Simulated assay, not measured.
Amino acid sequence: MPQKSQAQTTPDIPLWGPFLTKDNNPFFGAMGIPGEHMKTFLEYQIELLDFARQRFEKDIEFIERLINTQETTDVVTGLSEFYQEAADDYTKECLKMTDIGSRMTQKVFEQVQDAGEDKKQKPKRRIPAAA
């Protein structure tokens, strides 16, 4: 009487999902996404530090102008201009931060998509049945 094969095929959705690599080692595949996160985090930090330095320099200049102002109308005009410029600067900075986040999201999406396409091309592995 012929014996049944005790091996079975893997399901269509693998346990490790998009993290399998050419070597079928999920740990190497999973490192790409956190690497992009760390790189993006550092880009955010650099951008924020540059922005803070520039804003602080403008704040100091404004305080110096305010100290040297003699007329009340100049103070009100100076405050209005300062807040308008600050609002513009913060708006521009928000756009920069959004751009950094969008680029990271696109890179991670492409990594996951590439890993998924790579997995589709691999033949299904056989898993030995439990004893």
Rank of each mutant, 00 (worst) to 15 (best):
D50K: 12
A131L: 13
A115H: 02
E57R: 15
D118H: 05
T21P: 01
P2F: 13
Q45L: 09
T72K: 11
A131D: 09
L66K: 06
G17C: 07
T69P: 00
K39S: 01
I60S: 10
E71K: 04
K22H: 08
K22F: 07
G35S: 04
Q106K: 10
L49G: 12
Q45R: 11
L49K: 14
K4P: 08
L49A: 15
G35M: 08
I127V: 02
P128H: 06
T73I: 09
Q6G: 12
L42K: 01
P2W: 06
K96S: 07
A86C: 09
E117P: 01
A130R: 10
F28G: 00
I33F: 00
E43P: 00
R125S: 08
D99W: 11
T9K: 12
N25Q: 06
G29V: 00
P11R: 11
M104Y: 02
P14C: 01
G35Q: 04
S80F: 02
G78S: 02
K96E: 15
D50T: 08
T72I: 14
P26F: 03
D50I: 06
P128D: 04
Q45C: 07
M1A: 06
T98K: 15
K96R: 14
E57Y: 11
P34K: 09
D118Q: 11
K4Y: 05
N68H: 14
F41K: 01
T72V: 15
F28W: 00
L15A: 10
K4D: 12
T91I: 06
D88Q: 11
L95P: 03
S80M: 00
Q3W: 05
T9H: 09
D88I: 09
T10E: 13
I100V: 10
R103V: 02
P34L: 03
L79E: 07
R53H: 11
T91G: 05
